[in-house]
């Protein structure tokens, strides 16, 4: 587990991530209430048993988060999901992939 600052996210992940060695599992969000959102970028190592590398940070819902899709293409799905389900803003990521206009808004937020 490694805590990172949201501003440093891109540098941290760029310096850490090597596609041949690390497997990006997903970006997990967890609403802790009181406008605090815990974000976890979960990585594992190929060919190593049960070895996780998790970057985490706590941010607020007002911030515009950076996207790591440029580094890891498959991250777009996770990011689009938390945009839809939590109502977070992520740079360059559009919502609407999982929910449409008639769906509830940000259903996984604790209290709105």
């Amino acid at each position: 587990m490694q805590e990172i600052k949201i501003e440093n996210l891109i540098e941290e992940i760029t310096s850490f991530y090597d596609p041949k060695l690390h497997h990006f599992v997903c970006l997990n969000a967890n609403d802790l209430g009181e406008n605090r959102l815990k974000l976890q970028w979960i990585f594992t190592f190929y060919n190593q048993e049960d070895n996780y590398q998790i970057f985490w940070t706590i941010c607020s819902f007002d911030e515009v988060l950076p996207t790591i899709t440029k580094i890891i293409p498959s991250a777009i799905m996770s990011e689009a999901e938390i945009v839809d389900l939590f109502g977070v803003q992520i740079k360059d990521i559009q919502g609407g992939l999982y929910l449409d206009e008639t769906s509830p808004i940000s259903p996984l937020r604790c209290s709105i």
């Binding site: 599992v25 997903c26 997990n28 967890n30 976890q40 293409p73 498959s74 799905m77 996770s78």
Partner: peptide, 30 residues
């Protein structure tokens, strides 16, 4: 492919967060 579960429990009967990541989910860009 890989399936991933993140569970967060807070000592009650209800879980605080269940996060399911399924194989197809991350493969769509590929």
């Amino acid at each position: 492919g890989e399936i991933f579960y993140y569970l967060n429990a807070n000592g009650t009967n209800m879980l605080q967060r269940v996060r399911i990541k399924t194989p197809t989910f991350s493969q769509i860009p590929g």
